[in-house]
Design a protein around this nucleic acid. Structure first.
Lengths: 206, 206
DNA sequence: CACAATTTCGAGTGCTTGCTCGAGATTCAT
DNA sequence: ATGAATCTCGAGCAAGCACTCGAAATTGTG
């Protein structure tokens, strides 16, 4: 019943996955330094040490490459070296800010692409739209949980507070990129202290 | 003693200033929609309805054009249609947020260029660096004045609060550009209420 | 080993970019 | 009016862009 003999697919070779990742890492650096529009495939190929043609074998278009970079960024962001989920919400946020501060490249990429994503049909537009919406829900849920514990100060609107946490974080990163003396973690901590009461010491023992 | 006869300068013609401004306005729209790197001189020339060559007669390089656009943006931002300086600091901020909301193009331009400005030798980099520094000082001064009136809540760090106001504002604009249901003014107002006590009603009558 | 699928790449595609050149059209002080 | 300065523009430049093509080198399966 094999009317048309189609070529037997063998799938990628052993070193292919590794190659792909080194391309993504190089692209992350290039896009972080020059942006998506500003960074060329040739720049990325040079950084990897391969021809631009070969690069396009692994990623059919520049857009595909960017999407892979965005995935990689999320993946790197999700990787929490230690003490990940143990603490409470505000502590986790501030810890994350301090953690990110040690990887300026990711912040740079995030800030630059966030701007670019506002343009016409930018490939990263959906990514940022979704990310903002997801994070707003996530943070709002966390704040609601605190509210039920009576740890939220009176008059705090959880949805607006969720958006504000994200906004403050993103905005302070932009300032930090242009002036490293800005204390990102302190700014976030200040705000969280304003809307959240400190947890009771025996919170898990009750 | 006129060793070298230099051509007598006559200065720009009557319609030149008007032409320049129509170019700047068109460039503002183009850069707001596509960014600086993404928007071409041809795009701007087309929008004005003139040749790209003539455009370059008025602005020798693309960089010069961008700087003129940034100046124009500041000029438009400074223009306050009404009730400019009468109210107190937090009210002025929130009013300005509401005002800007009616000119989305300016917000778009600001957000997009803010991202791009983080790249290598971007022409707008110094502009944003200076702007952030200037605004931080300006807001910190305003907050200090409120502090002396006893209107600042205890434990507020004026310098960090100044940076946080700017950060929150910039960040919430980015979210708003991707989801117009975000209430920018309310987020700013919430934060300002957290750090600033309401003024006494007879504040100017005392 | 043999042979095909995968990976690599040099060369080249058509297109766009910011910018230059030289010349014609327009303005305006004299 | 005259003529030089200003303004406009078509044509063109070298460089860079994302991407294609055809073929050689490499890999891994049977």
């Amino acid at each position: 019943m094999e009317a048309t003999r189609q070529p037997r697919r063998r799938g990628p070779y052993a070193k292919s996955a590794e190659r792909r990742r080194s391309i993504i890492d190089a692209a992350l650096d290039v896009f972080a330094a020059r942006g998506y529009q500003g960074g060329s495939l040739q720049d990325v190929a040079d950084a990897v040490g391969m021809s631009q043609t070969s690069l396009l074998h692994h990623f059919p278009t520049k857009r595909h490459l960017l999407l892979a970079v965005l995935e990689r960024r999320d993946e790197l962001g999700r990787t929490e070296p230690r003490a990940p989920e143990g603490r409470d919400f505000p502590t986790r946020i501030v810890d994350r800010v301090r953690l990110n501060e040690r990887v300026p490249g990711l912040i740079e990429l995030y800030a630059i692409l966030c701007g670019e994503a506002m343009t016409d049909g930018h490939p990263a537009r959906d990514h940022y739209t979704d990310r903002f919406e997801r994070l707003r829900h996530e943070y709002a849920d966390q704040l609601r949980a605190l509210q039920e514990q009576g740890r939220l100060r009176d008059g705090v609107d959880v949805d607006r507070a969720a958006a504000s946490i994200i906004a403050l974080w993103d905005g302070i990163q932009a300032q930090w990129l242009l002036d490293r003396s800005i204390d990102m973690a302190a700014c976030l901590a200040d705000y969280l202290d304003l809307i959240i009461r400190p947890g009771t010491e025996s919170e898990s023992a009750g």
